[in-house]
Nucleic acid binder design. Structure first.
Lengths: 148, 148
DNA sequence: GTGTATTTGACCATTTCTGACCAAAAAGCA
DNA sequence: TGCTTTTTGGTCAGAAATGGTCAAATACAC
């Protein structure tokens, strides 16, 4: 299993046990998992971004820390927020992050369908330069009808 | 016996033993059968396509994988039939007809989402000559995941 | 012999991992 | 206070580890 996934799992689990907020030292975390400190930043930026529904605050210097907070919104608000946050175009990765963040607001079957509609196999039938626009369009239209 | 058939047989057998889902590394699989990695892609695209009732998901990069899922098709023959009947492209009217025929097989909310994904507002962002292909692609991928 | 299916390999894309170098905040000290 | 040192975390480019694509070569079935 990937180091990044192991670290991410650890953070998820800690967040479960800590009422949605976790404060750690980057150095110690890296040492615990035997990786370089910058890998922690990699994990945070790829799996704990705002699109994923997390807020990360840090502080340098002696006693520095990294604080990760999970944001919780009501389902409807979550969906509306996503619709507003999706711009005119969106890349595959960010799209996935948004959908992942909606797991608590939409049934898994619905999410799977939306994910399939905006997924790579579908997008591959299009010229690369228009994929972002199409992804955004599909996502927004699909999310809209889930509100009705 | 052809290499492709041997590899396909292996995948079939593994899917039997693994309750419908199999995760492998393309490189390792190729090495096991002494073929080039791209032959794995060939096998997947010719024998494990959506029309055959399989979902293939992949991931690149360190720790990458190929995941193959067999979709249960007996109880949902209607949907599988639709997937096979939709050609390489489809116009808006016919697409609507297909979806209407599935009202007994899919929940209204699911149908609404698929309808939105393949609907006019989305298609309008595309050049007219590629809309048919996109509609077909979206429909097939969405219907496929409703089977899993 | 012709047309289709298979096989192969060169080149491309994506994700993860690593380390050198940078920036900020705290701690220590005149 | 103001400067220096120490202790943290941040960035970014590049290497490494996967999988993807496509067209040419080859094999196979009529």
């Amino acid at each position: 299993m990937r180091m990044s996934d192991i670290i991410a799992r650890f953070i998820y689990d800690e967040l479960e046990g800590c009422k949605g907020t976790l404060e750690v030292s980057r150095g110690q975390l890296a040492e615990r998992f035997g990786c370089v400190p910058s890998q922690i930043n990699y994990v945070l930026s790829t799996r704990f971004s705002p699109e994923h529904g997390y807020i990360v605050e840090t502080r340098r210097g002696g006693g520095g820390y990294i604080r990760i907070t999970r944001v919780r919104l009501a389902p409807q608000a979550l969906i509306m927020h996503a619709i507003n946050a999706i711009g005119d175009e969106i890349d595959a990765r960010t799209a996935q992050a948004f959908l992942q963040n909606l797991t608590s607001a939409l049934k898994p079957e619905i999410l799977r369908v939306i994910s399939a509609a905006a997924g790579d196999p579908v997008m591959r039938t299009l010229a690369p330069e228009v994929r972002g626009v199409m992804r955004a369009s599909i996502l927004k239209q699909c999310l809209l009808v889930t509100l009705s």
